[in-house]
């Protein structure tokens, strides 16, 4: 749903993306003509940023540079989630991915003192070329399929703002999805124990 300005909607509370729209609206000198397409504008900015930072992540030879561009990628995705009115997922994206997981990755890079990646001695193997070609084929097929048979969904659902809130997610999490939630807590415990056992230095006995 296109909401260029805060206050145009009937809801009493402003969603985070409306503040982004407001900021973008104020900063645009040509806002009169661009106001309707602010959602499109933000989508374009975040989408191009996401693709650019993803490509930077897989092409940088220095692993620390890869990790930093990946953090930028996560922030771009956060922006995209906000254009989809998914505020809870956007917040968790920053906390879990850009916060916890990337700290862990950077920690391991520093701990192992990994340098710049050199080119493999045997040249580029066949599987690399083949894998890249198949990957490009996949995106081509998805694009062609969507171009031939569009989904026809051009607007966000009417209740998009209400299902993205922490309240709605929490309510669903502790009612419908209670069992998966408990299972995930067991999974995290197992991962915790597994990580400690794997990374532990083996002490010779006797």
């Amino acid at each position: 749903m296109c909401t260029p300005l805060i206050g145009l909607r009937a809801e009493p509370l402003a969603t985070p993306i409306q503040f982004v729209y407001l900021a973008a609206f104020i900063s645009l000198p040509l806002h009169g003509s661009l106001a309707v397409s602010l959602q499109s504008l933000l989508f374009a900015v975040f989408a191009i940023g996401a693709i650019a930072s993803a490509i930077a992540t897989i092409t940088r030879k220095n692993p620390v540079a890869s990790a930093m561009t990946l953090v930028a990628h996560f922030f771009m995705l956060t922006g995209l989630y906000l254009t989809l009115e998914a505020q809870f997922v956007a917040a968790v994206q920053v906390l879990v991915y850009a916060g916890a997981i990337m700290v862990l990755v950077v920690f391991v890079i520093m701990l192992l003192n990994v340098g710049r990646e050199s080119q493999a001695s045997g040249g580029r193997p066949l599987r690399t070329t083949l894998g890249t070609l198949l990957a490009v084929l996949l995106v081509g097929m998805i694009t062609i399929t969507l171009a031939a048979r569009p989904t026809g969904l051009n607007q966000l659902a009417a209740n998009a703002t209400t299902i993205g809130t922490t309240e709605a997610i929490g309510q669903s999490l502790f009612t419908t999805y209670l069992f998966p939630f408990e299972a995930v807590s067991l999974l995290l415990l197992a991962a915790l124990i597994g990580a400690v056992i794997l990374a532990k230095r083996h002490v010779q006995e006797g």
């Binding site: 397409s37 959602q39 499109s40 504008l41 254009t83 969507l146 569009p150 989904t151 051009n154 607007q155």
Partner: peptide, 10 residues
């Protein structure tokens, strides 16, 4: 740019 982004773009 279209006024609202369709699902296909995402």
């Amino acid at each position: 740019l279209p006024t609202s982004i369709p699902l296909d773009y995402y």
